[in-house]
Nucleic acid binder design. Structure first.
Length: 282
DNA sequence: CCCCAGTCCTGCGGGC
DNA sequence: TGCCCGCAGGACTGGG
């Protein structure tokens, strides 16, 4: 499940595309269902052909390839999408192939096919990913920004961290990891957090995400996430709580990590070192 | 504003 | 051993 560290690793892995010219764009025939792509081929192919890629950026959980002239190709992998410069894991779920000058082949592979690829003008890009839609990037967010955006909310902090309008890039896996490092109970209402909590939480956001990037993301047992060269990440060996229910807490040695469900998603935490804070009584 | 359930999709693992 | 069912969840939508 690509979140910020996985998408950042993909972005770094495809940086060799910068400076190359788009020669050909085609859909892979082996995909059972067509990819969610906008605009549809051949219009997208015509708009991209002959143009040079000027930058490989990231916005939240998406890879953004900037094109000469100002358009951007946004690749949103969602659950199982991979942006590759190597051969894909299987031929079967290859969705899109972009041939670049110098013989480079950029591929988009997506097992479940929930991902989306969009070619956007600058105005369209701002409509999709402007400040109304996406909060500050999780790597840049400050404690002040987080508390300004969330401290008035009664939502559980775990659920709020998944809201991309509040902060961009955190998904279900890293939300649990971050809250464990920050020693905050995932069900704590945002409004119950004090200044020191926001500071500790923000520090944990930075530390967990930077460490996960250093290990090139998490490849889970389903094996879906890989870097641009089709290699596994390494951060799954450093998970503190995610999918470790029943195992001892790495911080306090407490007997068992617990699993609960919040907003229909699994949350993992240690009930011993992540104690809930109740909102102040009115 | 916030919350919930449903939608997309496929591979895998648990249970029988 | 084989089959079926449910689960995994990012982003979005519609209803309460």
């Amino acid at each position: 499940m690509p979140e910020l560290p996985e998408v950042e690793t993909m972005r770094r892995g495809v940086e060799p595309v910068v400076g190359r010219r788009v020669e050909r764009v085609r859909l892979a025939r082996c995909a059972r269902r067509p990819i969610h792509i906008s605009p549809a081929l051949p219009r997208l192919a015509r708009r991209m052909a002959g143009r040079t890629i000027t930058a490989a950026d990231r916005v939240g959980k998406r890879v953004v390839l900037r094109l000469e002239g100002g358009d951007a190709l946004v690749i949103e992998p969602r659950m199982t999408g991979l942006v590759l410069l190597a051969e894909p894991p299987t031929k079967e779920h290859l969705r899109l192939q972009i041939s670049l000058s110098g013989g480079l082949e950029l591929r988009y592979w997506d097992c479940r096919g929930l991902g989306i690829v969009r070619l956007l003008t600058p105005a369209e890009f701002n409509g999709w990913y402007g400040p109304d839609k996406l909060g500050p990037d999780a790597l840049d967010v400050t404690a002040g920004m987080l508390s300004d955006r969330l401290s008035g909310s009664r939502r559980a902090i775990k659920v709020a961290l998944l809201d991309q309008r509040a902060v961009a890039g955190i998904g279900n896996l890293y939300a649990s990891e971050i809250l464990h490092l920050a020693r905050l109970h995932p069900a704590t209402p945002c409004a119950a957090l004090g200044r020191a909590d926001w500071t500790r939480l923000t520090a944990a956001v930075q530390e967990v995400l930077r460490e996960a990037i250093r290990y090139e993301g998490s490849t889970l047992s389903d094996g879906t996430y890989r870097n641009a060269l089709n290699q596994d990440g390494g951060y799954q060996n450093h998970h503190r709580v995610y999918a470790r229910d029943g195992q001892p807490c790495p911080t306090c040695g407490g007997p068992a990590i617990q699993r609960i469900v919040q907003a229909q998603r699994s949350t993992f935490f240690c009930a011993a070192c992540q104690r809930i804070k109740r909102p102040r009584a009115r």
